[in-house]
Amino acid sequence: MDITKNLKKPERVEFILNRLQELYPEPPIPLDHKDPYTLLVAVLLSAQCTDERVNQVTPHLWQLADSPADMAKIPVEDIQAVIRPCGLSPQKAKAISKLSQILIDEHSGEVPDDIDALEKLPGVGHKTASVVMSQAFGVPAFPVDTHIHRLAQRWGLTNGKNVTQTEKDLKRLFPKDRWNALHLQIIYYGREYCSARRCDGTVCDICRTCYPARKHPKKVHKP
Rank of each mutant, 00 (worst) to 15 (best):
T209K: 15
F142E: 02
A42Q: 04
D70P: 00
L64V: 04
K8S: 08
K171S: 07
E110D: 13
L64D: 01
K8D: 02
N162R: 01
D35Q: 08
K176P: 00
H60L: 11
S100A: 15
R208V: 09
K219A: 09
A72G: 05
P59N: 08
V57H: 05
C210T: 04
D145W: 09
I104S: 02
I83Y: 08
R12I: 09
L99I: 14
T166M: 08
Y211H: 14
R84F: 10
E110H: 12
T128E: 11
K73D: 00
M133G: 14
L44Q: 13
K8T: 05
S108W: 05
R198N: 09
A181R: 15
P10L: 08
H126A: 14
I96N: 02
A69C: 04
A152E: 01
K218L: 01
L151Q: 01
A47V: 10
K8H: 10
E14W: 02
T38M: 07
G125V: 04
S89A: 15
S108A: 15
D116S: 11
P140Q: 05
T209V: 07
P223V: 02
C49D: 12
P140A: 10
T146K: 05
P36Q: 14
A117N: 10
P75Y: 04
K168S: 15
K8C: 02
T38Y: 07
